[in-house]
Design a protein around this nucleic acid. Sequence first.
RNA 1: GGAGGGGUGUGUGAGUGGUUGAAACAAACGGUCUUGAAAACCGUUAUGCCCGCAAGGGCAUCGCGAGUUCGAAUCUCGCCCCCUCCGCCA
Length: 409
Amino acid sequence: MLDIKYIRENVEFVKKAAKDKGFATDFFDELLERDKQRRELLSELESLNSERKKNTDREKGKELKEAIKEKEEKLALALEEYKRLMLRVPNPAAADVKAGTPDENEVIKEVGKIPKFDFQAKDHVEIAELTDTLDLERGAKVAQSGFYYVKNEGVLLEQALINYAIGKLIKKGFTPFVTPNVAKEENVVGCGYQARSDKERQIYHIEGEDLDLIGTAEITLVGLHTNEAIDEKSLPLQYAGISSCYRTEAGSYGKDVRGIIRVHEFRKVEMVVFCKPEESDSWHDKLLGIEEEIWQDLKIPYQVIKMATGDLGSAAVRKYDIEAWMPSQNKYREVTSTSATTDFQTRRLNIRTKVGGESIYPYTLNGTVLALGRAMIAIMENYQRKDGSFEIPKVLRKLVGKKIVEIKK
RNA sequence: GGAGGGGUGUGUGAGUGGUUGAAACAAACGGUCUUGAAAACCGUUAUGCCCGCAAGGGCAUCGCGAGUUCGAAUCUCGCCCCCUCCGCCA
C-alpha cells in the first residue's frame, strides 16, 4: 500500500509506474474520487460526533444519533471501496529498474563454469528414479500430481541443505525460525499477494477457516510483526524461516509438468529483513550476496537476473533472481529470488518504528536462501555421473554422510 | 471439545453509566537540591486519522465487532486471545 497523500500528489507518476509493471491504471480517477468522498464524510461525521459529545438533551440526542448512524453507513461504504482500490495500487519500481516486459530482464552476471559431460546428461527425474531418492508417482497417487515423496539420501540431502543454510545465516546474524505453514489472510494480502477473489490465485485456502497455506515463509516472517511497533534499536531485524510452501500454480498448466521444478508443495528457507529506509538498498545487495555465496559454495554455475518492471509483483520495487544451470534443459532456471519492497508491506500490516520521535514504517526485503526442491534438482543434475548416480557437493558431504549417492537398480 | 476465570496506557493495577485519554504506583526522561552520587521533591512521558501554510482545532481508540442509551472502559450479544482444571492427543 502506498501513502494516499503521496498518490494524490503524484498521480501521474504512480499511474505510469503501475503501467510499467503491467498493472491496471484505469481505476485511479475513481480512487481519488473515493478518497475525496471519504474525507468529506469523515469530516461531517466528526462534527456530528463533536456535537453529540456536548449534547445532553434527549430529543436532540436522538436526532444526532440517527444522523450519525446514517453518516457512518455511508462512510463505511465509501471506505470499503476506497480500501479495495488502494490495495490495487502497486509499489512503483525503483529508479534503477528498467521499465519493460519480462523479456527485457537483464542478465547482470554469470558465474561458474558450465559442466561438460562426456555422456548424455540425464534430468533429475531419471536420476531420482535410478537413485531412488524421490517418488513422484506415489506422491501423485496419495496426494495429487504436484506432490512428491523425498526418500533415502534425498531426505539426507534436504536436511543437509537446511542445516547448511541455517548455519550460514546464523553466522551472518539471522535469527532462525520454523514458522507456521498457514497464516490468516490479512498477512497474505498484507504482503502483497493476491486476494482470495482472484481467479489465478496462487494460494490455497482452508475451507471454513480464515487460514491460507503459505506460499512462502515471507508471509509468516513479515506477518510476525503485524500491528506492532518495532523498537528502533532492534533494527535491522534479520529473520531466516524454514517452512513448507504451497502453491496452486493456477494458470501454469502444462508448464514444467515433469519432475519437481513446479510443484504444489515444497520446503524452503527464506530470509526477511526489516530495516531503516536508507539501509534498504544495501540490504538488497547483501541478500543477493548471500544467495550467490550459496551457489558458489555448492559450485553450481548460475546467472543473476535483474528483473524489468514487468516481472515485479505488486510489492517489489526491485527484484533479482538467481538462475542455476540445469544440464538436462541446457539452460539456467530460477532457483532464488530477492525483492526489496520498501514500506509497502509494513503499511498494509501496520508495522511501525519510532525513529527520532517520529513514527515511520520500516522497510522490508525478502530473499530465498534455498528452495529445497529446486536446489536438489540442480545438485542432482550438475553432479551427475554417467550411470545416473550423483555426487554430493563438498560443503554438504559431512552433513549427508556420504560422497556419492549410488544407483539402486 | 467441556467447566470456570480473565483481557484497561511501557509495566503493575484502580475504575460497573455522565468532562475517564482514563486514578495510583512503578519505570523512563528532564529539573531542583548535592563537591559528586543516592534519597527527597517538582515536572514530562499514548497512538492513529481529519481540517489547516502554520499556530492550532477536531474525531477515534480501555482485546475485536455489533447493539442498548441523550451519554459506555463500565450494560447486552457475537467473535478472538490468555490462564486454570477435565477430556483427547504428538
